[in-house]
Amino acid sequence: MEPQIIKFYQTGSFAVGNRLLDDSQRSVQADMRRSNSLNSGHRACQGCGEALGARYAIDAAMQATKNQLIAVNATGCLEVFSTPYPETSWQLPWIHSLFGNAAAVATGVAAAMRVKGREEVRVIAQGGDGGTTDIGFGCLSGMFERNDDVLYICYDNEGYMNTGVQRSSATPPAARTSTTATLGADPGNVFGQGKFVPAIAMAHEIPYVATASVAYLRDLEAKVHRAMSLRGARYLHIFVPCPLGWGAASEDTIRLARLVVETGLFPLFEAEHGEVTGRYHIRNRVPVEEYLKLQKRYAHLFGKRPAVDTIGRIQAMADRNIRRYGLLGEEA
């Protein structure tokens, strides 16, 4: 018998780990020595996607930098649940300044490291979608434009969760928030508003822009690794379901983060210097309803008379993403 290389593994690359793989080929999260940068005892809600995403991303960055990492955090759930006096869950040097300035504070930290000749120490800024796409957007754009050596991570839970689920510029159409009531002719958030910051980040032609989802750990970690292998301004936009704000079951966090990608509503891709260099091809395409109906914020679409038109418009958004980013491998 010819000696053969076994290429197939029981769970391929989709599970967190794989006992059949060499340690070096497993995900950071599978490693017993992972840094647990965001440790137990934090006060995030049950099933919080942001808590998960933060540990995924920071642990990966810690591994990539051999723990030579400093994190800057915007105000928001992540900050509040991780550092209420007298306890912090962080295991790395971390600072919280304000809601809208994480990118700039990170610029300052990076400048300090550079001037002190400690370029091995890398800097991450992180915040929620509100802290990123709205109030922190000026600082973010400034950091991008100067190409400061910072990886900015946005944990997108599509709303101002920490203040009680208000609308942000990342809130999707039709979604109910406490400031987009399901009343009137256009219940929920209106169509035709909002912005997709990864695309704006690309317009800055920074070295690296990527989107990720907590349901695709391997992909997420690979992107953090890629980001940390580069210098200059980098942006990672991670989709993190919020069970509380979305009215979803806590155990559905990863399911939702998967469905949003498999529907096409949230494209996973990466770009370097403004050009898309990689995209995730949908593995198991599903209609948007499957994603929407698990969340109470869309409950008004599925009443006695389902809002077929609205659902259709959301489906059209998914279809447009699929076209625009070439999310269906062969067909594209």
Partner: peptide, 27 residues
């Protein structure tokens, strides 16, 4: 041995200063 950063606003100026100072630089 000094970094001079042209920021996009005073809010950023003070924020960059906060980061730099917290990281041990005279700012």
């Amino acid at each position: 041995r000094c970094e001079f950063i042209n920021v996009e606003s005073e809010f950023a100026a003070m924020s960059v200063a906060i980061g730099a100072s917290a990281a041990g630089a005279r700012t």
